[in-house]
Design a protein around this nucleic acid. Structure first.
Lengths: 123, 123
DNA sequence: CTAAACGCTCACATCGATGTCATGGGCAAG
DNA sequence: CTTGCCCATGACATCGATGTGAGCGTTTAG
């Protein structure tokens, strides 16, 4: 398939798909005229990239983790593991931050609701 | 206290504190010479702001939620509640995204470890 | 053959919180 | 008074993923 279809299937814009390739997250074969060609495996890969990007990972980290570079070299795999562990730690602490923020927010919501209930009583 | 001490106590840079004020997240009284003056309550407020910013909320949202505008107006409180509910929903779905990403990452880590174990066996 | 729809590359724009620098005033200790 | 440190404002820079548009080739349906 060409870039338009991959875009339609994944929801990633054509612009983003080209960017992913430029950053080394995605490889494509080219037709004789230079157009990018993808197969079904690429749909999955893009989905994974989207998952990671949505989690705030940088394309640089993703490039080091996702084995987009065909040949699974052992050295590369070891370095990838390092990055993965770092990212996992980062993810976990981000989740903790968000959870803390949500709790703070819940508290604010309570305070606010009470306030509104009281002013309603005052009427 | 002046801005330097508030900065030291909260870890927010002076630049950020001035930015928070400019965005309406923080109020300060001014000394006759124009310097910002804060009290202990401001430390707590800044901490809350940091919590929310770290959770990816925009300063715009925070400004609508945090009752920095002294007088707790009922209309304002109602609009704040709307924003709070939206932000809560957003937070929850972001947490879900991060959790999903972490699971995908765990899977990648497993695959990678197996691969390394196998290549080690090959030796 | 032609027109529409698609693809390519390059380049510039965007957003938001923060860093940094320039220029100048405020205040306390020597 | 001077030196050193803090503060004020304003302007410009940064980062990263994505949008947008120009200019030009390709593919496909009529």
């Amino acid at each position: 398939m060409r870039i338009g279809e991959l875009s339609a299937r994944t929801g990633a814009s054509r612009r983003s798909l080209r960017y992913y390739e430029q950053q080394g997250l995605l490889v494509s074969t080219r037709s004789p005229s230079g157009q990018r060609c993808y197969d079904d495996g690429h749909v999955q890969r893009v989905t994974l990239i989207q998952t990671f990007l949505a989690a705030g990972m940088s394309s640089r980290s993703i490039a080091q983790m996702v084995p987009c570079m065909s040949e699974p070299n052992a050295d590369r795999a070891r370095r990838a593991l390092t990055v993965m562990d770092q990212e996992r730690t980062r993810l976990t602490s981000t989740i903790d931050s968000l959870t803390a923020a949500r709790e703070a927010l819940d508290h604010l919501i309570d305070v606010n609701r009470s306030f509104l209930a009281n002013t309603a009583d005052d009427h």
